[in-house]
């Protein structure tokens, strides 16, 4: 009896795994099949590098969105990466292990907060602050960068902590025994030894930032233009798809799928480089 139930379970799990995988694969194939022909028809350069996005007139240049996505992401990294790495260093080196064991899971929990909540806080708190103190409409590139910078913190902190903790204790002891302070040890031995893991955490976080949609739509203002300053509203690639997919038809719809293909490729590249950096480290050990 147990043997047959074992077999049934195995088949069942296989079927589940297979259908989950094939669903993902189908989605990928669908996006590419919808988007790729459009890119070839419309022209790769015209699509990526023209600033005219006017679906009614048949103009589909996503350059403003590409630039906006780039800026919002870079801004988020400029805020999130130093904060996240500093947080990881603080938690591993300057806080008792027992406290760290409590704080780390709580930080990881933050990654589970729905992005609409982050967006809501951005609209209610952050945007007014920016409007009142820095000027502009408030809903802006800066607001997007700050919210995204906060949203990627759990990813960076958690993976960085893991890679800092993976640095052999003997390195630390050797450094301290030579009269180095804890801070010197972090800077000269621990961080260099953990750098590939930290780099991977930053790249993965970048993937998250590029792909984030809801919070970004809520706080960036969504006007299609190349931003002149951080206080101006912008529209990212993801926001563009989400905002227009509801009513798009024909060429317009295909252009949005093509935008999805661009995002897909960028995020694939980021994820592959993250795992490549990680593998490099394993190979070196």
């Amino acid at each position: 009896m147990p043997v047959t139930s074992e077999k049934i379970m195995q088949r069942l799990l296989l079927a589940v795994a297979f259908s989950a995988l094939s669903a993902l694969l189908l989605i990928a194939v669908f996006i590419i099949s919808q988007g790729l022909p459009f890119i070839f028809r419309y022209g790769f350069r015209e699509f990526l590098f023209s600033s005219q996005w006017n679906p009614q007139a048949g103009k589909f240049g996503i350059f403003p969105m590409v630039v906006s996505t780039l800026w919002v992401t870079l801004g988020a990294m400029a805020i999130g990466a130093p904060l996240g790495v500093a947080g990881a260093v603080f938690l591993t080196e300057f806080v008792p292990r027992t406290v760290m064991r409590i704080i780390k899971p709580s930080i990881e929990l933050l990654a589970g907060i729905p992005s609409v909540v982050y967006g809501f806080i951005g609209v209610m708190v952050l945007a007014p602050l920016i409007r009142d103190h820095l000027g502009g409409p408030g809903l802006s590139l800066l607001a997007g960068s700050i919210i995204l910078g906060i949203m990627i913190l759990p990813t960076i902190i958690s993976i960085s902590i893991d890679s800092i903790m993976a640095v052999p204790k003997s390195y630390r002891e050797g450094s301290l025994a030579l009269g180095a302070t804890v801070w010197q040890t972090v800077r000269m031995v621990t961080l260099p030894a953990a750098r590939s893991g930290i780099a991977a955490s930053i790249i993965l976080a970048m993937g998250r930032a590029v792909g984030e949609t809801m919070a970004v739509i809520m706080v960036t203002g969504n006007s299609v233009k190349i931003p002149g300053s951080a206080l101006e509203p912008v529209r990212t690639l993801t926001a563009n798809i989400a905002l227009e997919m509801g009513y798009a038809t024909g060429m317009h719809r295909q252009a949005l799928f093509a935008t999805g293909v661009v995002l897909f490729v960028v995020i694939m590249i980021l994820n592959f480089s993250a795992s490549y950096v990680m593998r490099q480290r394993k190979a070196r050990r």
Binding site: P168, S170, Y171, G174, S175, A177, M188, V189, P192, A193
Partner: peptide, 28 residues
């Protein structure tokens, strides 16, 4: 710890070049 130094049971050079290992204490 600069006056009383220590050699450990398992060799524990830093993952740095040989030269940087030797001058580590001075840099610090």
């Amino acid at each position: 710890r600069k006056r009383v130094g220590m050699v450990f049971q398992r060799p524990n050079p830093f993952p740095l070049p040989i030269y940087e290992n030797v001058v580590y204490g001075l840099r610090v």
